[in-house]
């Protein structure tokens, strides 16, 4: 089980209250009509699956129902950082 710090509630809660929402920082193309099929396909379907540091989007589903990002090591499961949407992560893969 993860023990996750919710940056909106300001305290640690059990993983049970959260849902993982996949990779973070996926920007929707500003002009979808001008996208090539490949670009749109990349945006919709293709995700990173790194071994090591990964930025993920999570939602505090049973609590404040707000979204936030987690930087997590997929190998050790260690949560390295929690930050709100729009903020820049300080821990990044080299």
């Amino acid at each position: 089980m993860f023990h996750i710090f919710c940056p909106h509630c300001g305290e640690y809660r059990e993983e049970e209250e959260f849902h993982a929402k996949g990779e973070a920082h996926i920007a929707r193309p500003l002009d979808p009509d001008a996208c090539s099929d490949e670009e749109w396909g990349e945006f919709l379907y293709f995700r990173k699956n790194p071994r090591g540091i990964h930025h993920e989007l999570w939602v505090h589903a049973a609590g404040c129902r707000k979204f936030f990002n987690i930087t997590r090591n997929t190998q050790t499961y260690e949560i390295l950082e929690v930050y709100k949407l729009g903020e820049t992560p300080s821990v990044v893969a080299e």
Binding site: C9, R13, E16, E17, A62, G63, C64
Partner: peptide, 8 residues
């Protein structure tokens, strides 16, 4: 007393 949480 006074604390409020939403949870499962």
């Amino acid at each position: 007393v006074g604390k409020v949480v939403s949870s499962v």
